[in-house]
Amino acid sequence: MAEVWTVKRCMDWTRAYLEEKGAERGRHEAVWMLSAVTGLSRMELFLSLDRPLSKAELDRMHGYVVRRAKGEPLQYILGDTQFRTITVLCEPGVLIPRPETELLVEEVLNFLDKEVLLASDARRARVELPWNAEVAAARSAEEARAREAAAAGGGSGEASADAPAELLDVTEEGERAEIAPGDGTPEAEGVVQAPEGSTVPARTGRSARVLEIGSGTGCISLSIVSERPGLVTAVATDIDPHAVALSVKNREALGIEPARADFREGSLTAPISHEERGSFDVLVSNPPYIPESVMPILPREVTAYEPHRALASGADGLDLFRHIVKAAPHMLRPGGLLACELFEDALSTAADICTLAGFADVHVTEDLTGRPRFVLARWR
């Protein structure tokens, strides 16, 4: 008789194996791989713990586990990741989106709403991110199962070890900072600020134009235009043709018109025409920013798999940023915003660079972990 591998058995084995290989979140990774293999959502997976896996599913799962055990990032294995409210495709050779960058998008949206779009209703309602609904539903379902088991004399009524507490960790690998529950802040509740309902309130301002340098997967520009439909257009550049092609692929998958998110191959602002210069309300970038001295101590799954030129930027991590600051005055309208994500130890120097270049209202903001992460500056 053939050996039967259920969802639960495969999940438990994968967790133990990956943790033995050094994974810090083996359970989390096992759940995401099984979800991809079976086509079940995370919620459905925990409601199907006794479901047998087919041979094809087991073979595919085996391939995933082997690749992950060697250190390959989960996003490359699964082929996509969640970024704010959209899903973006990920491919080897293009930098994987990070949770910090979601807050960079939020800074840009806050500026546009206040300074450009001039929304008549400034209230910003909290909107649950997609995976939170799955967590809540799975938790409710598991609690119901536990109550039924208790009523039938099968236990104490407490939730099983297989859920739902584990579900609190079922978020995209590397795509969400650890969240401490219960402090009442939007970050703690796993939410982002967004306009009330699904559209932006009525406005009296003009439409906005955003320039992104270093598009990568396109997650920044695509998030901005998708969260402000009809109100914002973006032009994004990247020197890597592979990154540009992936950005276009993500744009097509999201059904966004090319005119709303225009991805161009070229270095920095080289693809921007003379007529377009000075027309942008925001210049945003998540450039390479890791100091060369820090590169050797990064996790192997970063240095061995992600592109070096998308990570490192000179001795202090600011080589490319200096070029961006020089170009920004020629790209921005008066009062336009420069917004960049940078290495935590370089933000003070970055702020000084902006001030010396003639920017006003220069300030540094933190990421979800409280580390300095973004420099924001207004062109006079």
Rank of each mutant, 00 (worst) to 15 (best):
F83D: 12
T85I: 03
I86T: 10
I86H: 12
T87V: 10
G93I: 02
G93P: 05
V94Q: 09
V94K: 07
R98V: 08
R98F: 08
P99C: 00
P99Q: 00
E100M: 02
E100F: 02
E100K: 04
E100P: 01
E100N: 03
T101N: 10
E102R: 05
L103W: 04
L103C: 04
L104E: 13
V105N: 11
E107P: 14
V108Y: 07
V108H: 10
L109T: 09
N110K: 12
F111A: 14
L112H: 09
L112N: 12
D113R: 02
D113W: 04
V116K: 14
V116Q: 15
L117D: 15
L118C: 06
A119M: 08
S120H: 01
R123F: 00
R123E: 01
R123K: 02
R124W: 10
R124Q: 12
A125D: 10
V127Q: 14
P130G: 15
W131P: 09
W131I: 15
N132C: 04
E134I: 08
E134V: 08
V135D: 04
A137T: 10
A138T: 11
A138G: 15
R139L: 03
R139H: 03
R139D: 03
S140Y: 04
S140T: 11
S140I: 07
S140D: 07
E142H: 09
E143Q: 05
A144I: 01
A146S: 06
R147W: 03
A149P: 08
A150D: 05
A151K: 04
G155V: 00
S156P: 00
G157W: 01
G157P: 00
A159R: 05
A161L: 10
A161Q: 13
A161N: 12
A161P: 11
D162L: 13
P164W: 08
P164N: 11
E166W: 07
L167V: 14
L167S: 14
